[in-house]
């Protein structure tokens, strides 16, 4: 547990000799649905062929609008959902089809933080029972006992360890989220999937929780997949960002590449949609309004999935699916006509 210099540049981290901590390829999740009486079986293609890597100690942001498959992806990464196809390699091991004991030992290294702090804590359990649950379930007896370890964890996430015997309803949203974080840390995981960990919190509390996560990341050398829809939060926390649209990744890049020089038109539109307080009253400056709705994931558009709403779309976009390739900015984007700067 070394104090790594957290400000290290992403490239260096990814170049860790042990390779990336997580490598995802062709990850797919289809949910079967039945439409109508004479059911022809159809699939909701929630996640359709994701490819990405997470370096050691890196925080990868996963952004996109509602329904684009972010949460499904997160659930698959911790194996709460079974992928339809594809492969997840964690720390050099293929974890896609783990079962029984090996799945259990994986779960000690890979934990999840949930979105809703009001539903992620059992209302009938004390804080001590909630945070100590992973230890009990895995029959781990830390030196000094479970209680001591739980109190250390509570202190680590900035809660009073004396609150061991309190119940979740006695805490505020931010404190509850800290309890959830302490629970995720109980097993000393190497990686944490954070599924919109701050979107249910007040803005002022969001900053505290984000700062806490960042401190923990530095101190414990954690890797993160940070799922969010709030672009400014992601910018603050993540080294690299992957933008999703309709079950696919459209662009991956570092902070500068994504926020200052977005290559994919969707990334550009998404960024322009972020309200900017400093520009209130100005005439709409370069704001891109996307027409229409997100197409249904049951029957996604052919070729590029974004073409139905893209102002650059041509014949080619309907027939040929753009691969993820490196663009002029150095990011990776899936677009036939990426933005250039």
């Amino acid at each position: 547990m070394t104090q790594t210099d957290a400000a290290a540049i992403p490239e260096q981290r990814a170049a860790d000799a042990r390779g990336p901590i997580m490598k995802v390829s062709k990850l797919t999740k289809h949910f079967p649905v039945r439409a109508g009486l004479l059911a022809t079986k159809q699939n909701v293609r929630a996640v359709d062929g994701l490819e990405f890597e997470v370096g050691r100690g890196e925080a990868l942001g996963l952004v996109g609008e509602s329904g684009c498959g972010k949460t499904t992806t997160g659930r698959m990464l911790v194996r709460l959902l079974k992928p339809t196809a594809g492969e997840i390699v964690f720390d050099g091991k293929d974890i896609t089809h783990l079962k029984g004991g090996s799945l259990r030992s994986l779960r000690q290294e890979l934990q999840i933080i949930f979105q809703d702090p009001y539903s992620s804590l059992n209302p009938r359990h004390t804080v001590g029972a909630i945070v100590g649950m992973p230890l009990k379930v895995n029959k781990i007896n830390p030196p000094g006992g479970v209680k001591k370890r739980v109190q250390e964890l509570l202190e680590l996430v900035g809660l009073n360890p004396e609150h061991y015997n309190r119940f979740p309803h006695e805490f505020s949203g931010g404190q509850r989220q800290r309890i959830g974080i302490a629970r995720a840390l109980a097993l000393n995981p190497k990686m944490i999937i954070a599924d919109e960990p701050v979107s249910a919190l007040d803005v002022s509390i969001q900053a505290q929780v984000i700062n806490l996560l960042r401190e923990l990341q530095r101190e414990l050398d954690l890797s993160f997949v940070f799922i969010a829809h709030d672009l400014s939060v992601v910018r603050h926390f993540c080294d690299r960002i992957a933008v999703m649209y309709l079950g696919k990744i459209v662009e991956v890049g570092d902070r500068v590449q994504i926020y200052e020089k977005p290559s994919h038109p969707y990334t550009k539109a998404l960024l322009s949609a972020v309200p900017d307080v400093s520009k209130i009253g100005d005439k709409a400056t370069g704001r891109i309004r996307l027409e229409g709705d997100v197409p249904t994931p049951i029957n996604p558009p052919s070729g590029c999935r974004f073409r139905t709403r893209c102002w650059k779309a041509t014949e080619k976009c309907a027939t040929e699916e753009p691969p993820l390739v490196t663009t002029s900015t150095g990011a990776t984007a899936a677009c036939h006509y990426p933005e250039t700067y």
Partner: peptide
């Protein structure tokens, strides 16, 4: 697996202050 992690001092102090409830120090 169960190496104790401590040094809470490295957590930003204002975080601790704002989120600690009513300063009761006895076992609650």
């Amino acid at each position: 697996m169960i190496e104790p992690i401590t040094d809470p001092g490295s957590i930003e102090p204002e975080v601790v202050v704002t989120e600690t409830v009513d300063g009761k120090q006895q076992s609650v």
